[in-house]
Every structure is written in structure tokens, then in C-alpha cells.
Simulated assay, not measured.
Amino acid sequence: MNAAFPPLREELQGIEPYGAPQLDLPVQLNVNENPYGPSPEAAADIARSVGEAAASLNRYPDREFSELRAGLAAYLEGDGGTGITPEMVWAANGSNEVMLQLLQAFGGPGRVALSFAPTYSMYPEYARDTLTEWVAGHRADDFSLDLDAARDLVLEKQPTVVLLPSPNNPTGTALPPEAVTMLCEAAASYEPAGIVVVDEAYVEFRRTGTPSALELLPVHRNLVVTRTMSKAFALAGARLGYLAADPAICDAIRVVRLPYHLSAVTQATALAALRHAPELLGKVEELRVERDATVAWLREQGFEVADSDANFALFGRFADRHAVWQGMVDRGVLIRETGPDGWLRVSIGTAAEMAAFRQALLETVQDTPQQTTQQTPQDTSEQKDLA
């Protein structure tokens, strides 16, 4: 056999698959997980629910996951949503699959997906995998959006999918409501109209006074708000992401979803977690306080830190960030080498974990000869940043 094997698509050849470092270190602060797991009571309810589902695993699950959609709609109603019905909710195996389904339904050959860098590095991968043209605008030095420039780019490129994480990953920057409104209006002004996806994977960690885009759903029919149970709900291992949108958008996604894509076990786990929502979300405020303290401490040490409404902090700037990352690893602390060149990201952990982070960082900087840099934020989409 002389031809290259296997016959991988040309544009995929030579690309490394996603892979965040998974190192067995005492302190793991690299993938934005909630450091507090489910309580024994919540874990027991999940186990009981999964056990009940196991008795009928010879049958396919509810293809429309109706009970789960109702539960998610009720939760969103209590967190900024208004008039959200089960028909307005869709779920999949993590918000990554939700995003991919959106690109499968509304992207494709001859269509454009657009976002603003630096941002979540999986977005261009979704576009690539669905043969959608990828366009990336740029954020300001403080990682905010120039709203007029953003609107002009949308009007110029006329994307069918606009991806707006809020809080943004990896910077933690939240979007003001006027940004969502402006871009929804712009995307609705051409044919075919575009949908605007506000990715709220970290929104439960937002600071007081920061609104959710859910409040704008009754105003903009082309708005989609995505969420996940991986972060604030402490269910990263369950893989459940979801969205709220106009029912017509949810119906369109049903065309591209795989049959029975949400297992009975996943549905049972998510429903049990929703029954324990106040308890599972009980550590969110504690993590907010720890985040704000971490940002303040980093700035006191002379680091540049992006304002964060998430459960992580992006800080820098380093002439050799990999050397700093490696120094932290050598001291038993795993953080993330991601985002614009010269920056590092730390997830917010327990008080003890953050104390270990601070100590390791001080020792690493002291022992790693380097100078800070003043680089302009730029897109580094090759950094695969799933979490």
C-alpha cells in the first residue's frame, strides 16, 4: 500500500488531538474543576438513581430526555431566566457537544463562524470539523470587546454562528448586556440570519451585579445561551451541557443529533444533581471569595491579572511562561499554560490549594531568571483548552 494510511482528511493531517496535561500532582489547578465534590447525600442519590436506570439498560433511553429538559428549564428560571419552557432547552454530552451540534446545524460549507480572540480554543476546532469557515476578531488589551468594531466585523463577514463566551475562557472577562444586544441585532440584519451563542459555562461564578444573557432571551429570537453542569455543579465527570433558546433552534438541532445521544445513566445523574442544586452550588460563593483574593494577591506581587467573573485567573506576563509552568510542576502544583503568549491560568481551588499555589509561584519566580514582557494579547488557538 503506497498511499498514506489511514486516509485522514488533508486539513486534519499533522494535527495533535486535544490533550490537557493530566499529571498526578498534589495540587491540580489546571482545568477549572470545582474542587469540592458532591456531598455523601448527593452522591448517594446519584448512585440510587443510576441503579434504578441500570435495571432497564436493555432499553434505549428517552430520546427527547423530557424530564431532564423540564428540570433544567426550572433551574434556569431561578437563575435569571424568564418564561423558559422545556421546549426551549436542549442538552448533550457536555457543552462541547452542544457547541458541535450548533455548528453542525447552522454552520457548514459556505458559512462562517466568528468569535473574538483570545477565546476558547475549541471554537475553531468545531468550525473545522463541520467544514465551516472560521473568522476571529480581536479583543482589546484588557480583553474587552470594542463593540463598534465587533458589530462591523459581524456585518462584514455575515456569520451564521457568532460565539461569545461570557465569562470568556481563558480570560474570565464577562460581556455587558449591550454587547449581546448589539451583536444579536447585527446578526439578524442579513440573510441567512446568524445565531449568537453566549457560552455561559462559568456564569454561576459571576460577580454580584453581572447579569446572565438569559434575561435577553425574550428579546432576541436568534440568541442561544449555553451552560454546563461540569463547573459550578461539580459534575465534570458526568458530561452534561445544555442550552436555552427559541424552540425552533432546539428543533433544528434534533436534525443533526445522534440517536439516543444522552444515555439513561447521564439523564439519571443530571436529574439527581438538579435535586441537590442548592447543596452542589453551595461552595460557589466561597470560590468567588477565593478568586477575588487570588486576583488581589497576584496584583500585589506585581503580576498583570485579567478581571475575572469565572473560577480561574489569567495572569502574567512572562518572558518564558513554560519555564514558570514547569517550575510549578516541579513543586507539585499544576496550572495551565494557555491563552495569549506570556500568560498562565490558575483554577481556583480550596484555601489550602491556593496557599500551595502562592508559595510555589513565589519560589518559582525567584528561582527562574526572567523578565516580564509587554506583549499584545493574541489568538493562540493551537492551545487546546477544553476546560
Rank of each mutant, 00 (worst) to 15 (best):
A3P: 06
L8F: 13
R9Q: 14
E11F: 06
G19Q: 08
V27T: 15
L29E: 09
V31M: 02
N34H: 12
P35I: 12
P38H: 09
S39I: 04
S49Y: 00
S56G: 12
R59K: 14
R63T: 10
F65M: 13
S66T: 15
L72S: 02
G78D: 14
G80D: 08
S95C: 06
G107D: 10
G110D: 06
R111M: 06
E125S: 13
L131N: 15
G137R: 02
R139I: 02
F143K: 03
A149G: 06
R151K: 11
D152T: 01
P167Y: 00
L175E: 10
V180Q: 05
M182T: 07
C184F: 01
E200W: 00
Y202D: 08
F205E: 03
R206N: 14
R207Q: 09
T208G: 00
L214I: 11
P218G: 05
F233E: 07
G237F: 07
Y242A: 06
D251F: 12
V255L: 08
P259F: 07
S263P: 11
V265F: 00
H276D: 12
A277E: 04
E286G: 15
R291C: 09
L298C: 09
V305M: 01
D307Y: 03
D309S: 10
G316W: 02
F318G: 13
D320R: 15
H322V: 07
V324R: 07
G327N: 04
M328R: 04
R331D: 11
I348Y: 11
G349W: 05
A355P: 03
F357R: 08
E363W: 02
Q371H: 03
T372F: 08
Q374W: 04
K384S: 12
